[in-house]
Design a protein around this nucleic acid. Structure first.
Lengths: 146, 146
DNA sequence: GAGCGGGACGCAACCGAATTGCATCTGCAC
DNA sequence: GTGCAGATGCAATTCGGTTGCGTCCCGCTC
């Protein structure tokens, strides 16, 4: 299939810079996957990522999984569990890696970050429990599904 | 974990009452599964539910799935997507079926309800989006894991 | 109490997301 | 240019969950 969706070169360059900055080996699959995430306006499933980078270099399914895992470990990406038992990934915002909310459309499964919504800073947990991460998920219908 | 003790009869009776009240057919698997949920202090995976009711009547894996699905449809149970790509179930509290928070231990996967934490009622979503359900999940370590 | 019908159950096969093992290839340090 | 640790690709496997279908049984009726 033709390059119907040309990835902006800027994203690829940004991806390379981030990988370099992390002191990691620079490879085509890593650059491609990270560029897709940086370019995305919403959280993507593994499958969506796979087809998004199809026009360029063909990357093995397993490699996509491993690259995503590696990005999450590096803190460059964020993994969100979905209602449909699959994971979605977003590139981490460098400026705000604090807690933020997610919106998931219950019809089409689209997931976006709600930067504007702040999660309550004071979470009361039972005695002996140690809170580490707070995640706020909003279910509903997105603009194009209702 | 593997508790060979008998399920408190009170829970089984309560389960039967709830099923009756919903105008549904009363069967052994339904009573057993709901009794397990009512007895649980935390959210259980399908697998945990299956082994919890093993000492009593052997219930087919598929039947457990169907019963849980049916309980969720009836509003008697609540399904929580977990970080480990599995679902967990809790019996719905009759008194408070409003939005409430969940705590998940990132080491042992235990999930409990945080009734005390109220989710922010005013969630700002992008124009055109229609929020329906707000879910607040806290990740961390539970009392017995740190 | 016996008969009956539709929904529930159990079994087995199936599906798709994710993972693992292993041989091969490659980025990059020297 | 060379060597090697680490990354990739392929195939097979695992595992949570689902579906199809024949049989069983709850609860209604007579």
């Amino acid at each position: 299939m033709g390059n119907a969706t040309l990835r902006p070169p800027a994203k690829a360059a940004a991806a390379q810079r981030l990988i370099r900055a992390a002191g990691q080996r620079l490879t085509a699959p890593r650059t491609a996957v990270l560029a897709v995430l940086l370019d995305a306006k919403r959280a993507l499933t593994h499958h969506e990522i796979g087809s998004a980078l199809a026009p360029g270099v063909p990357v093995d399914r397993v490699t996509v999984y491993r690259v995503l895992d590696w990005l999450v470990t590096l803190g460059l990406a964020h993994r969100i569990p979905g209602e449909d038992r699959t994971w979605r990934f977003v590139a981490s915002r460098v400026d705000s890696h604090g807690p933020h909310a997610h919106f998931t459309c219950s019809r089409c499964g689209k997931t976006v970050c709600l930067e504007a919504v702040a999660t309550p800073p004071d979470v009361k947990v039972p005695r002996g429990f140690l809170p580490q991460k707070v995640e706020l998920t909003v279910q509903g219908l997105c603009a194009s599904c209702h």
